[in-house]
Amino acid sequence: MDHSAYLTGLRLIATGAGVTVAISLCAIAIGFAIALPVCAANMSGSRIARLLGHFYVSFFRGVPLLVLLLLIYYLLPFVGLELPSFAAAALGLGVCTAAYQAENLRGGFLIIPAGQREAALAFSYSRYQSWRHILLPQAIRAAMPMMVNEMIAILKASSLVSVVGVADMTRVAQNIVARDVQPLLWYPAIAFIYLAINLTLAHFSHRSVGRLRRGRPEFRL
C-alpha cells in the first residue's frame, strides 16, 4: 500500500471526524431544547406534568441508545416524517441526551439556595423573570460540569449512528478497513482521535468548574 492511499484514508477520517463532531453538537442542542421543558415539567406543581416528565426521563434513560436510534430511524417514516439519516440520528441522540440533561439541570436548580428565589420575589420579579434572570443562569452554571460530561458521553455514543447509515468517523473507518484490511491501523487511530477530543473537553470542564468557583460568568441583563 502506498502513501497516497494512507493520505486518502486520513482525509476520509478527517471528514468523518467532522461528521462526528457536527452530529454530537446537533444532538446536544436538540437535547437542551427538549431538556428545558422536561426539567420544568419535573419541577412543576402539576402532578400530570411531573408524571410525564418522569416518564420521559425514565424511558429515554432506560432504552439502549442503539435500539433507540433504530426505533426512531424506522418510526419517523412510519408516522410520515421523511428525514435524512443524519437528522434522524441527531434526533435520536438528542432525545436520549435530553433525559440526562434534564436531570443535570434539575440538580442545578436544586442546589440554588432558597434565598435566591426569595430575593427575586422581594424585588417583585415575576415568576418568569426570576426564572429567566436569576434561577436559570445559576442552574446552567451549576450543571456545567455535568453538561460537559454529557457532551463526552454523546460524542462517544455518536459512534452508534453508523448503524443507521451516517458516515461518521467510526463508519468511515469501517469502510476503509473493508477495503485495505488494516484494522490494527485504523481502529486504534480513531480511538485516539475520540480520546483526544474527549480529553480536551474534560480539560475545558475542569476550567469551567474553576470559573464557577470564582463566580465569573458572562452577563445578561
Partner: peptide, 20 residues
C-alpha cells in the same frame, strides 16, 4: 445577603430596575 452570585455588583443593583 441573598445577592445573585452570577451577577456583578453593578448588575446586582441595576438588574431589578431593568427587569422589573
Amino acid at each position: 445577603f441573598n445577592l445573585w452570585p452570577h451577577l456583578s455588583v453593578l448588575e446586582n443593583v441595576a438588574q431589578p430596575l431593568v427587569v422589573v
